[in-house]
Nucleic acid binder design. Structure first.
Lengths: 346, 346
DNA sequence: TTGTAGGCGTTATCAC
DNA sequence: GTGATAACGCCTACAA
């Protein structure tokens, strides 16, 4: 079944069918109705490839989960709490906009899948999330004019085809720091991700700002860099941190991501320490499941649903309008959720 | 950049370029090499739409998460523990096969997206998971000849274009039941999903078999049907169950799915009862996070990774071979993981 | 308001 | 081993 057959059944030409399909105004009401009925009866759906070939954008978005860590373990980044949620929300949101998402895990070995999918016109636009993409590669993609939304990748949009969405990482760090200070902690440590990550640095800057406001310093010896999106990264970083400072343990740890939090929690248990009696915990990012744990874990969170909504919706707008007036978005509704993992020191 | 331009640069015709692209044998080694170099230099990627138009299958699989519950709450089915994992694994596995997945949440209002995506040739094949699709609609899709893998939807494949993959639901139910019996429980309840679901019935049948083997009955009053893929479904079902039997509480509940488990757990807490002192809990399906809870929850699980691997790989095979000799698969490596939520009664 | 014709980029068929 | 040509199904001029 194709437009020619529909045209025959309706006694019109293919162009008229096409006009109906694309809601062009210059079709008589009677003809339009007749054709629409036949389309419905015949269950006709235009061939997406043919449309694409004559230059119409398809309704497919690429969602690229960048996962370029050096040391792989059993977890892919899309199994980390934030991306679990992000993927689920973004599928739904894209669907509601009438788009579908083509989701790809981008590792070192398939890094040019991004370019390939754009070049083959399989996708009309893309969202990049997860690890930081190598900046040369990013530059290259931007230069090709591909329409993209970059989430937590760079600070500012650098081209009309690029929309930048960032978490208010600084605020998250600050809120976590303020909570610990408020509860009377002074020996505060920070387990966080890779040094070169935008989000890692900003969160750390926020934490430091909170401590400084209270006349405290974020001691270098109390900072340990792990792997942002991996449980094992948190586990090992926490072990290193606590071993190194065994004679002067921190009373609280601010953990830079929800994935690492699960590892830190486990490491503390494995070392025979208790949460929160020996060490208080708070994480930046969190997940539903925190509330079922014992102790229930405190967190500073920005709504993942909101991140998904902003990234997907902006991309759809960019595609449909051709360009966007504002291309930089910061999602700043960070919120502290107090649970039981932060002890109040007198 | 298209094949014509490549052809010009290589001083050959488009046909030869096409032959190189598609690994046809009848091209001289020298020509092939020359063309390949140019393709690489020019970063040329064939237009997917054009290929599709002349009848080549694209490398896109539809993943349809069926979510047709009557009462929506905040959770979409793809945020339930099993699908969190399933989606993450299947993205990765499809990618490794050189395919991408187009993931859609199928609700009542967009139920014919499945047909539309096939008809528009946006996808070459599809995987159906989640709720049961209405059987008339399923019949219709099967009749169209669409290549599909159905997961936990029907018992047996009914057409050459359909591969059926099922969890060994019976075995899961049986293992959970056996564990409770072994620990000395006799008043065993079952919180499970919708009555018409294949997996619900099979799990229940397995549980019942285990009890019967021990000379016990699965009391009708101890069965409560909730909503398989929703936390709230478990929560409310548990409340109904426990209220109804307040004078003769069960000592253990077997929960039919991981989503419901979180709700049941919460409901028990909210009613002032303790796990496992007052009520033991075991669930069919589980998740990593169970081990961080207090008490850590016992579960019977089939590897979600395996489910993803089988469903995706079979679909790829079906697409590439045209047909499959065996079309029915049962994933039967169910395993009991004992943690702390089942009390041993003397 | 409607029809005709050309072209999008690829592959397959046939000829050489 | 290679090249010319005709599809594939659609959309968009332009013509009527």
């Amino acid at each position: 079944m194709n437009s020619t057959e529909i045209a025959k059944l309706a006694n019109v030409s293919r162009s008229t069918v096409s006009r109906v399909l694309n809601n062009h105004p210059n079709v008589s009401a009677r003809t339009r109705e007749r054709i629409e009925t036949i389309i419905r009866e015949q269950n006709y759906v235009p061939d997406a490839a043919a449309r694409n070939l004559v230059g119409k954008q398809n309704k497919i978005l690429g969602l690229f989960i960048i996962d370029v860590a050096d040391d792989y373990d059993e977890y892919t980044i899309c199994r980390s709490p934030f991306f679990y949620d992000y993927i689920a929300y973004s599928i739904d949101i894209a669907n509601r906009h009438g788009y579908n998402q083509l989701i790809t895990v981008v590792r070192k070995e398939n890094i040019d899948d991004i370019d390939r999918l754009f070049r083959s016109k399989s996708i009309s636009g893309g969202i990049l999330v997860g690890d930081h993409l190598d900046s040369a590669i990013l530059q290259d993609l931007v230069g090709q004019g591909y329409k993209m939304v970059l989430y937590n990748q760079i600070e500012k949009s650098c081209a009309p085809n690029v929309v930048v969405v960032n978490y208010d990482n600084f605020k998250c760090g600050r809120l976590a720091g303020e909570e610990l200070v408020r509860r009377g902690h002074t020996r505060i440590a920070h387990v966080t991700g890779e040094r070169d990550k935008l989000s890692v640095n900003e969160r750390q800057r926020g934490l430091r700002a909170a401590l400084n406001s209270a006349g405290l310093e974020l001691d270098e010896a109390y900072i340990e860099n792990g792997c942002f999106n991996r449980v094992s990264g948190g586990y090992e970083a926490a072990k290193r941190l606590l071993r190194r400072n065994r004679d002067n343990l921190p009373t609280a740890i601010c953990v830079g991501s929800a994935s690492m939090m699960m590892g830190v929690f486990q490491a503390i248990k494995d070392m025979g320490l208790r949460v929160p009696e020996d060490i208080s915990l708070i994480s930046i990012d969190g997940q539903d499941l925190y509330k079922y744990m014992t102790p229930a874990l405190s967190e500073v969170t920005t709504s993942c649903e909101k991140v998904a909504k902003v990234t997907v919706t902006r991309l759809v707008e960019l595609l449909e309008r051709g360009r966007l007036e504002y291309r930089d978005y910061e999602i700043s509704d960070a919120e502290l959720t107090q649970r039981e993992s932060v002890l109040t020191l007198k």
